[in-house]
Design a protein around this nucleic acid. Sequence first.
RNA 1: GUGGGUAUGGCGCAGUUGGUUAGCGCGUCAGGUUGUGGCCCUGAAGGCCGUCGGUUCGAAUCCGACUAUCCACCCCA
Length: 442
Amino acid sequence: MALLTKAPRGTADVLPDESYKLRYLEQRLMNSARLFGFREIRTPVFEHTELFLRGVGETTDVVQKEMYTFEDNGKRSVTLRPEGTAGCVRAFLEHGLYNEALPQKYCYLTSCYRYEKPQAGRLREFHQFGVEALGSDAPAEDAEIIALAHHIFDLFGLDNIRLEINSIGCPACRKNFQAALRSYFESHLGDLCETCRDRLARNPMRILDCKSPVCSAIAKDAPKVLDYLCEECQTHFGEVQKYLKAMHIPFTVNPTIVRGLDYYTKTVFEFVSDAIGAQGTVCGGGRYDGLVEELGGQPLPACGFGMGIERLRLLLGAGGIEFPPDDRPALYIAPASREFSFEAMRLTDRLRGEGFEVLTDVSGRSVKAQMKFADKKRAQFTTVLGDAEVASHTAKFKNMDNGEVTELDLDRLNEEFSGLWSNAVFGGFPDKPNLTLLNGGK
RNA sequence: GUGGGUAUGGCGCAGUUGGUUAGCGCGUCAGGUUGUGGCCCUGAAGGCCGUCGGUUCGAAUCCGACUAUCCACCCCA
């Protein structure tokens, strides 16, 4: 236990027994995004700090106290990305992608970094699946990205999750609303809890969401955002709901939903679960019509969402969702003794060239020990190589599931083993071994 | 940043009101005759009981600090 050091606080190692599940999960996510017309974009882990100052908002908690910011050796201030949207929009502008057919739709799977105190569903290095649709102001676009998130939860068979939507209006109507809100809460200043008094200056809409009984009682009679929406925002929000209903996506309007990032406008939404602890928001997003211009481009409407991979994983665990088993080695070749190790390695190498996962002994262990090892590794077949096999150019291949033994010609091993294997795995339907990797059904 | 819980071999746990070689299950490794898995049996390796300091004749067991971790607040994915 006298380790030199451990993984930094708030980071997590993903070991093989877990990583194959994540790989499966991530592939399902990217495939789903593809169905909705999103294509993958990859942007750097770190960006110039000003991108996030402007993009995320200087007054937000994320920027004020959670960013991993440092100066590089060239005296530039850089920051590990705390979220995915800003970098994506930056790349969109930098490469003139607004000249392509709009809307442009991107998806990504990235690590994000936020210096916070870790707890259930919250890490300092975490992973987000996100999508961004740039160049459409249509309510249908809002609905489409919500539909994608819904599609994903549906795909995994998750029902312990609910969709809540809201509209926080455009800058014009939000200004009126915030003024009304502020004056309302100021008249109750003495009764508010300490954090809410603090919130009043920074982000009065947060008070609506306060868990303190006193504050929430006061919040009950506070002005409602939806009453302050301008006509355009109102229609927009109404249309979004119509599209959701058309797609039979259940939702509730929750007027207390506020996003913590400055760039949101109009539609905001969250997919929330009670099954994974206090950090129940698995997916959050909305429209951000001002961001492109904020980052130096021509005004361009956009919307998107971020989904927490770790939270999604927790949710799948809580829902008892089964993952398909990991791929197993096709064959273990056991040399009867050290002198057959070379022939074993030669055959192993040939079969690997054919696309099979094949294991063999490298440490000169007894055949019995090797068999135990092959069993632990869940090898589909095993074979032993010794005098008799080398002399006769044939060997017995044992199916570890049922003990059946088949004799194969070692000179034609690639073809004969392919047949044996696909018969065992596909019940006679030949298939390329590699196609099973990562496909996991459906 | 604030609050609470927990810290014993790789993992999961015991360790009785402080007492002398710290146990158990799983796992790992090697055997149970000669070239074969999953059950069973035997044996072995592996822990300065989170760190530092204190109380005591004596502490994994009591006290303090620190660190880590978990949970919650804040905030967010």
